[in-house]
Design a protein around this nucleic acid. Structure first.
Lengths: 209, 209
DNA sequence: GATCTAACTAGTCAGTGTCAACATGTGGGT
DNA sequence: ACCCACATGTTGACACTGACTAGTTAGATC
């Protein structure tokens, strides 16, 4: 049994994998993925520097687990965003906003999800979580195309949505910097998402087959 | 004077900064940015492990220099791509293809360019090179909007182009993996670029003000 | 030709990831 | 109730890393 003691002063932690993931998120958020340290993670979780190995193998295993968690929450937030709307186009817009919100709320996860050099791309759990998240996007785009009787290629349209939002996430700092250098007030991320979503939708709606 | 001796066995290298950048590119290409090592770079350039510091300060300085070089070549390749076309829409398409080609030909540079955690974002040279590259895109989009008498917002349209192509670059490995898992043959990167460019152009052309 | 300085080296330090060897409890079978 | 296998943790060691200080070399300037 695990009594409600603080679970940090015990020899067996109780839920070390989660504690390590949380600590890893903190480290990445503070130092950036470029200055990630497994020992620092262990330190913050209050365990020895080799404890993580028993759960994740090596640092790549821990980051892969983080990436999987990222795709899972991506599926989760986009799914609830989609459920809140009925109109297909509105669903797609809501999905885009949810995607970008995720990137600002969980930056550490999102830094890891698309970094094939630091995660295990052959990991089965990772692939499944990723596929499920993408599958949802694909479904929503398909619904839109069918509902409005469009000629757009569903695969291409889904790719466009994903690529654009992902690009926005990566480029956001640079775009803000450009606005600053050109002397104009910087748009909020939300406004950028809306602008791009509108343009994207126009493209999908008017695409020839 | 620097006679045509092999310049590697001399005490003074001759052009160490460039040699270090090239070695850094090799290391990143082979190991990924996540397993970058300044000492390894110095080793490949045939100098001691502290030599890079005299030219770049620290590892961040070297990577910042690499990012700047990346934006410079981005400007260069997009500029020649644009010059080869006359039609504004064709220019924009050519630019997109050049952008993605750059990412496949110079992956190391492109990995660094949008990683604010490992470069010095306040570096003036970096900012200037980035602005010049973006300025070219902005000009091409403006020409398109003016030439075709469109209502599209130039800033938004340029952002869409950049974000989509950048997203495609980042997502490419995942997209190929998805195709593989769904059993269909994977598209070439070039084909993906064409598909997305077509969709984007449709969006820009049919956008309301 | 003396000297000044940029370019480079050598040695050191704390910190890192991973491995091997050892310690600790938890749970299952008898 | 006991015992033991094994998951979970620890300590120590190793080669490696980035950065610092101090010293060396050679090209440029006067």
């Amino acid at each position: 049994m695990t009594p409600p003691t603080s679970s940090t002063d015990r020899y067996h932690h109780g839920d070390l994998p989660n504690a390590l993931r949380e600590a890893a998120v903190d480290v990445i958020s503070e130092n950036g993925l470029g200055h990630f340290s497994l020992r620092e993670v262990a330190r913050r979780a209050g365990v020895s520097h080799t404890a993580p190995a028993h759960h994740f193998g090596d640092v790549r295993g821990l980051l892969t687990s983080l990436a999987t968690e990222g795709f899972d929450t991506l599926y989760s937030v986009t799914n609830t965003a989609v459920a809140a709307e009925t109109e297909p186009a509105e669903r797609l817009s809501a999905m885009g906003e949810a995607y970008v919100s995720l990137a600002t709320e969980y930056p550490a996860h999102c830094q890891v999800m698309f970094r094939p050099d630091v995660i295990d791309n052959d990991d089965e759990c990772l692939a499944e979580s990723g596929m499920r998240a993408y599958g949802l996007l694909h479904d929503v785009v398909r619904d839109l195309v069918e509902a409005e009787g469009l000629d757009a290629d569903v695969d291409a349209a889904a790719e466009l949505c994903w690529a654009t939002m992902q690009g926005l996430v990566v480029l956001e700092p640079k775009l803000a910097l450009i606005d600053a250098r050109e002397g104009r007030p910087s748009l909020t991320t939300r406004d950028r998402v809306r602008r791009l979503t509108t343009l994207m939708l126009d493209g999908i709606r008017h695409s020839a087959p």
